[in-house]
Write a protein that binds this DNA or RNA. Structure first.
Lengths: 210, 210
DNA sequence: GTCTATACTTCGATAGAC
DNA sequence: GTCTATCGAAGTATAGAC
């Protein structure tokens, strides 16, 4: 029984994810991707139109999966507060299943998304849209204070991406700074859930003056 | 009176900041940097040892200035809460004086700081160290709740970098999502100050159960 | 300090056999 | 579907005159 036909294409995508996340699009080398996938360059070009094309397929696939997962949470029957909790945990979990994701996302943000085609871009916008909808629902119900939904989205997503992108590097920094045990990712997720609960709660923190 | 000698070197650094922020180290082109600085390539190599060398000088200069500004705030006589406020505002102001900064920082994080030399890395670590010290002081005084200082640092810095890196791109996303007026950077700074005040405040947000 | 011309290398992509 | 060999463009860096 022969191996399934798409095996090598999948291996190429996996290798590309690694290479692009480590070096960025411009720094990635097609030769290295091929070698890592244990195919030769011609094979790569047989499956994918170009370096750009390979990159686009990878991003589209990944961002679509991420958006789906977030949308599923947003569509579930739960309180806005619970949904925010779950989105934070779900997003972190999604990343930890694919550690190539945060570095690529960071670089895309750095580039203003200029390398994303329109379709992928629209898919990706579904994530902040879902978060915004939840926030607005919470505000409408009176369980959240009034807050700019896009601000809320950035506040919860950015630290997670940073934290998980930094990975071992952050561990070194942390070792220089704290005497705490190695920073566990789960702890950070809980921290961010806590932060967002407080950020969205109807006023509880006392103002000093007036 | 002849022009000062370092004029062209400074122009090269300015051009390099732009080019590196738009394209990353690997995507940056020495020819383009030279053209943007209105010098020729040979001139660039007369002032700087290599593309790498130019990049390092740029980063060292920028990160040193950033660390100095944060340290000055940390050393000032103010309450921990005020210092956090000022660091958020000061960091955002620093970035807005150099819009090349966030994209470069994002890419460095994506790469795990592998392109920074040891000296620059140590300089940069001074920033989270300063924040951590303030947080710990607040915790010791009992004005902040116990919190991992490195978590606190990430929570406040990452969204600012994201927000200011995304710039116009975020504007488009925002236009698709909200009917609010264009997101002003000042509003976002206030938002993050608010978030951190709440995140650090001694418990005010009510827990649902138990 | 400044410029032109060019050496040398790397890299994306393809041709063409099997 | 898979491989070897190679082309041609682009890119970093330098030589050497002024």
């Amino acid at each position: 029984m022969p191996r399934p036909a798409r095996v090598s294409a999948d291996r190429i995508l996996d290798a590309a994810a690694l290479e692009f996340s480590e070096r960025g699009f411009a720094g990635a080398r097609v030769d290295r991707i091929a070698r890592r996938a244990r195919v030769n360059k011609a094979m790569l070009y047989y499956h994918f139109s170009s370096k750009q094309g390979l990159y686009r397929v990878l991003l589209r696939r990944t961002f679509t999966l991420a958006a789906e997962r977030i949308r599923a949470i947003a569509a579930s029957p739960a309180s806005p507060a619970d949904k925010i909790d779950k989105i934070i945990a779900g997003f972190a979990a999604f990343i930890r299943e694919r550690d190539f994701f945060p570095a690529i996302m960071l670089r895309e943000v750095a580039e203003g998304g200029s390398r994303l085609d329109r379709e992928t871009l629209l898919t990706l916008v579904a994530v902040p849209a879902a978060v915004a909808q939840i926030v607005q629902e919470g505000v409408a119900r009176g369980t959240f204070r009034p807050i700019n939904p896009l601000f809320a989205h950035l506040t919860m997503i950015a630290p997670i991406v940073f934290y998980l992108a930094a990975g071992s590097f952050l561990g070194e920094v942390g070792a220089l700074l704290t005497h705490l045990q190695p920073l566990a990712a789960d702890d950070f997720v809980h921290h961010m859930q806590d932060v967002m609960r407080r950020a969205l709660a109807h006023d509880a923190s006392p103002r000093q003056t007036s």
